[in-house]
Computed example of a mutant assay.
Amino acid sequence: MLTYFLVACDRLDEKQEKKLRQNLPELQAVLQAYVEANEAANVTLINDCESDDCEDWQLGISQPVKKHLHLNFPVNLFNSLATRFNIDCEVGYIADDVREPVSYFGKDEGPGEAFLIAEYLGL
């Protein structure tokens, strides 16, 4: 199953957007480092932040998973990003090039749990 993890860039207030814009280079660097460290697992970077409107941004990763244990690393990564940058995250699966969200976690939603996310994904 191809999963994705995104930084939630929509429904942000002005203060949150400003902070996200300030932290964007660092977020991109952390995600790029994760992708490079996990090339063998076919992790790819989602980095579409060209729009002037944060709501249109798509920033995160996609990663194939077969077992719920494969979710531990990306969930831990995005939990740490949520804590460090005060953001929320969206997780879901990709089918026919369409992203289907199954859960949100982070600053406002609380920490993500790999086991529960695996249940939502049907793993």
Score class of each variant (00 low, 15 high):
L69M: 09
N79H: 05
T83G: 14
E90A: 11
P74T: 01
T83M: 15
D88C: 09
G106D: 07
D88M: 07
E90H: 09
I117E: 02
R84W: 09
W57H: 01
N86Q: 11
P111N: 14
A114M: 06
D88W: 06
G106V: 11
V65R: 03
F85E: 01
N86Y: 08
V98S: 04
V91D: 04
E119W: 02
V98Q: 06
L71Q: 00
F115N: 10
F78Q: 03
W57D: 00
S80E: 12
F105V: 10
P101N: 06
N79Y: 04
D97L: 06
I61E: 02
P111Y: 11
D97H: 06
Q58V: 07
K107Y: 15
G110R: 14
V102H: 05
R84C: 11
I87M: 04
A82F: 08
V98P: 00
L71I: 01
Q63R: 03
A82I: 12
E55I: 02
G112Y: 07
H68Y: 12
N86S: 13
E113S: 07
C54M: 02
C89Q: 07
N72R: 08
G112W: 09
D108A: 14
H68T: 13
D88V: 09
V98L: 05
H68I: 12
A82L: 09
G92E: 04
S103Q: 13
K66C: 15
I117L: 06
R84A: 13
G110I: 15
G106R: 05
D56Y: 04
P64V: 06
S80L: 12
D108E: 14
E119S: 04
I61G: 03
P74D: 00
A114L: 08
A114E: 10
H70A: 11
L77G: 02
F73S: 12
K67P: 09
F105S: 10
H70G: 12
C89Y: 05
Q58W: 01
D97G: 03
P74S: 00
W57A: 01
Y104C: 13
Y104I: 13
Y93K: 05
L59A: 02
A118Q: 02
L59Q: 01
L69K: 09
I87N: 04
A95L: 08
E90Y: 09
G110N: 15
K67N: 11
N76L: 11
V65M: 07
F105M: 07
Y104E: 15
N79D: 09
F73M: 13
T83D: 14
C54E: 01
